[in-house]
Design a protein around this nucleic acid. Structure first.
Lengths: 328, 328
DNA sequence: GAAGGATAAGAAATCGTTTTCAATAAAGAT
DNA sequence: ATCTTTATTGAAAACGATTTCTTATCCTTC
């Protein structure tokens, strides 16, 4: 910047002014400076900028996701990245893999990187480190999961209704022994989906059988193992409602290993659609979350909040779609 | 930091010294300072640190991937993130979606964020902006794709050999009209895979038929469209070798739409294995790249280079595995 | 023609660190 | 008793921007 100023014969203050086109600067000198910038291929340092002018124009967002191996979060991330890019924001991506220690460490890093804002899917509703960050005044938008006792923007779907519609569809199709493989019990969405499952059963006068509900940890392996347990039962369930897409894929593997035919021997429908659902065996029914849009909306809300920290918080509930294919 | 210094009754210089345990500081004052840090919950600013001490200890890496929707890159990213985290590095993730303008813009951002190092899958072999960055002295490791005329660390697989083994397997299984849906022709790996395809054909005295090779853009849609074209041919190909996993999934969709039976009507094998390959219809054969390990090795090389910018460059070629399942 | 206002640009402080240089005191050497 | 060395610290200069004061100049306007 010094060199630019020298070359244009002005002070660095003036250079800064044309860079941010703040205040008025003479058209003639402004052109001189622009030319000098081009000649020297000058690129302002985002680091220095961020250091000087606390939040606001440093254009860096933090993103904290629980599991980047989950295609759902990949799509959310795509939505975030797309919109962030369009608004000239870069993103620091942190993947904490449901490890709260790792999450806390990443939150520390993000804070000390002086990000402008954060999009996070909290480890659980009481996520202490994250709550502290919100209270400290950093603009935050939660996705997929809420945060208790704290006023914060949220973008998520109606998990209970989504689960309800899936299970109801199974019931209408004639299934009665419907098992559920739930995700990690500490994640709000797992609980809500299980509630939707139960509600659909009770509304249809089907007794709730606790043996048919297995709680796991939202991974492929848990889907595989718990499905194997369920399939061993006598009598076995006739349908499976799985809590997320990794669980679904794991359960699918278990079913294939037992050489069962879907949906004759057992039906299956899960939360989270996948782009390649049509190519699975069989084409898989699913509760589709608008993942890309969740990411997109989250960034929009975040950018709004950054520019107006006072605006009232918004809870945006997007709706799910029941994608019926051949698995139930 | 000022407050810490004041509370401990020392100067900020001394605080800095205990923070980086550089030089000697009296054990007594060091304890006082440590206590003050704890009391005040002081967190040093990574931004200021990065500003002051150019590359070295700011612990921020850049990652530039072509397509975060591609499960291959997701796994690479997982490998990168895991190892980076273990070494106390945070990462800025940039996804350029094969858009060279976007790539150039991200490279600018990364440069002006003063990252310590960069892991990138270049848009093409002549990637000009990236070459410039390497020449400017930023530590860079390329993954999956190389860079012409520039000395840089690379981690990739033997694409030609991998493709060769897949096609040879098809030939041994008796297929003769083997079609190939290739990826973007500007990506080195696409070219190498096509060469492996041709080599396997010629070694087995099968005439190369240019009509059976379609070049696309490495997306799901290209896989779908080009597979549909191929399936319309008279006579139709009896086997398909697809250039990456998105193409494979697209082609699978095309085959299912035509209600063809795999592998009786048509066999298929593609580059890139997927975790859920067993659950596809049918369980899909594939050339497996050790994606996670590619990411892992890349970070290791990068950290080495950061600490020793002079060491000779390394080209690390990992081997592929032929995963034979039921699709050919 | 003098006061007031607007415009344009520079000087210097600041953000939160690291690092060089200098200073002090204690200890050891001659 | 004086001179070196060594250990420990502080003062102050960077790093590269933004921003608040000033100041200088030039118009208006009465």
């Amino acid at each position: 910047m010094n060199e630019v100023a020298k070359r244009a014969g002005v002070s660095i203050a003036t250079v800064s002014r044309v860079l941010n086109n703040s205040q008025s600067v003479n058209e003639e000198t402004r052109l001189k400076i622009l030319k000098a910038i081009k000649d020297l291929k000058y690129q302002p340092s985002r680091v220095a900028k961020r250091l000087r002018s606390k939040s606001g124009s440093s254009n860096l967002l933090g993103v904290l996701v629980p599991d980047i191996q989950n295609p759902f979060y990949v799509d959310v991330l795509r939505g975030i990245e797309d919109i962030a890019y369009k608004n000239n924001y870069a993103i620091i991506m942190c993947n904490f893999g449901q490890d709260e220690k790792k999450e806390a460490m990443y939150l520390n890093i993000l804070e000390s990187e002086a990000i402008d804002g954060l999009i996070a899917a909290p480890a659980n509703e009481n996520d202490h480190p994250l709550k502290k960050i919100v209270k400290n005044g950093l603009p935050v938008v939660c996705v997929d999961r809420g945060l208790k006792d704290v006023d914060v923007d949220i973008v998520w779907v109606n998990n209970e209704a989504g689960a309800h519609s899936a299970v109801e569809h199974l019931i209408r199709a004639g299934y009665r022994r419907i098992a559920h493989i739930a995700g990690l019990a500490s994640i709000p969405s797992s609980i809500l989906r299980e509630q939707g499952y139960r509600k659909a059963l009770s509304e249809n006068n089907i007794a709730y059988n606790p043996d048919l509900v297995k709680w796991g940890d939202s991974t492929y392996e848990s889907g595989l193992n718990l499905a194997e347990q369920l399939l061993k039962m006598q009598p076995a369930p006739d349908a499976l409602f799985t809590g997320n897409n990794l669980i679904t894929l794991g359960a699918l593997e278990a079913i294939h290993r037992k050489k069962l035919i879907i949906p004759n021997d057992i039906a299956i429908i899960g939360f989270d659609d996948m782009h390649w659902a049509n190519s699975l065996n069989p084409p898989l029914s699913a509760v589709r979350q608008p993942a890309y849009e969740i990411g997109k909306r989250a960034v929009e809300l975040l950018i709004q909040r950054i520019s107006d920290p006072q605006r009232a918080t918004i809870q945006m509930t997007l709706s799910t779609d029941l994608m019926i294919r051949s698995s139930c």
